[in-house]
Amino acid sequence: MAETANIAAMAERLSNELFAEFFWNITGPMNKNWSCEKKEQHNLDTHPSDVVFYYDDPYSRNRVYVNCDLKSYAKSSITVSAVRGALESLSKQVSCAEVSDEWRELYIHPNVTPSICGLLFVYNHDGEYDKDFRQHLKSLKNAQLDLPKGARLVVLGPEDIFWLDNVRYEIVQMRGRRTGSTPLPDPAHCRYFYPQLVRRKNLELEHAKAATLEMLTSQLIVLEYDRQGHPEHKGLVLFYRGKGESADEFTYLFDYLRSLQLLKEGVDIEIKLLNACPVAQPMFQKAQQVYIDGLSDTSAASPLAERVKQIQYRRMSQVLTRFSDIELGMDYA
């Protein structure tokens, strides 16, 4: 039983470290059971909440509450039936949390508009899972999910967690001084970037610093920071999940930056890839050259062309976070 508890603690430890770097906060008690509001329908007396994170949405006044089911599985335990059972259980948790006074008393802050969603966090603790986890999800179309209209369930599989953990690690490393890379300031001077949208004005820019679930499950995570000692200068780090197999991938990123008027003086820009293919570096250089050539016949030395030339490409180092169940069992702090 102690060994099982230590293995479960691995997902808890990793999720806490991981989401803290994305500016998520924990609310209420961890590993708490609360009363089911639909006992006949769910055939349960209680539901568990392993941990509830929250962050403020950048495009509304909603505070997003993420009810998490943390799973720490060995390779052999990541099966379709296991994932289906976890998803069905999580959907019931979210369904009840929406109407539960007890859950709201435990986790919801006063004077906020809550938006509740569920997150299934599937951590492969032995690091040996090598299948396509998305195939499991495709086979779960017929899972019996009890969700209110508009409610969301998000699944992070082993590959997703590996990607996010490497982004987290890279950010931590960038805060140290390393040759060839602009050091990041402390977290107080960093935030995740959300553009002002025409139809969805960013209402909470000063408070909504966190990376949303939508950003964390997309191909692009954008971190914005202030240059210390130079408040008029900013930096952007684009963590891109693609492989850089073609120049078009980088052209898309240049267009993204240009459309948001980020290719301007005083903004340092880096593009970082984790699973970069062998030709990613030359593809990036080709994209720069072609993009500059396409601006106009006379723009090779224009300010916009210079800004494109100054974009930096870097490959991220891969790390795999592993825990010892013995060491976790000895951690009494």
Rank of each mutant, 00 (worst) to 15 (best):
A2M: 07
E3L: 14
A5F: 12
A11S: 15
R13C: 05
E17C: 05
F22D: 03
W24P: 01
I26V: 14
K32C: 05
N33C: 08
S35V: 10
C36E: 08
C36A: 13
C36K: 08
E37F: 01
H42P: 08
L44R: 15
T46F: 12
T46V: 09
P48H: 04
P48K: 14
V52I: 15
V52D: 03
F53C: 00
Y59E: 02
Y59W: 08
R61L: 13
N62Y: 12
R63D: 01
V64F: 03
V64N: 05
V64A: 04
L70K: 08
A74E: 11
S76T: 10
S77W: 02
I78F: 07
S81E: 14
A86V: 04
A86K: 01
L87R: 09
E88A: 08
L90F: 05
V94W: 08
V94F: 07
E102T: 15
E102N: 03
R104Q: 15
R104N: 15
L106G: 06
L106I: 05
N111E: 13
N111P: 00
V112I: 15
T113Y: 12
T113N: 13
T113W: 05
L120V: 09
V122E: 00
V122H: 04
N124G: 02
H125R: 06
D126K: 08
E128P: 00
D130L: 03
D132V: 13
Q135T: 13
Q135G: 01
N142Y: 12
A143F: 07
Q144T: 13
Q144G: 05
L147P: 11
K149M: 10
G150L: 09
V154N: 03
L156H: 08
G157H: 07
P158L: 06
I161L: 11
W163L: 05
D165W: 06
N166Q: 02
R168E: 00
Y169G: 01
I171D: 00
G176V: 08
G176W: 06
G180T: 07
L184A: 06
L184R: 10
P187W: 11
Y192H: 15
Q196K: 08
Q196S: 07
N202Q: 15
E206G: 10
K209T: 11
A210W: 07
A210S: 15
A211G: 10
T212S: 15
E214Y: 09
M215D: 10
T217W: 01
Q219N: 04
V222C: 11
E224M: 13
R227H: 13
G229K: 04
G235D: 03
F239R: 03
F239W: 04
K243W: 00
E245Q: 11
S246G: 02
Y252G: 02
F254T: 03
L260I: 00
L262S: 00
K264L: 06
D268E: 14
K272I: 08
L274T: 06
A276I: 02
C277D: 10
V279A: 12
F284N: 05
D293R: 15
L295N: 07
T298W: 12
S302K: 02
L304Q: 10
L304Y: 00
A305N: 00
A305V: 02
R307W: 01
K309Y: 06
Y313L: 07
R314E: 12
S317Q: 11
Q318G: 04
Q318R: 15
F323N: 07
D325H: 14
L328R: 11
G329V: 05
M330H: 14
D331P: 02
Y332S: 09
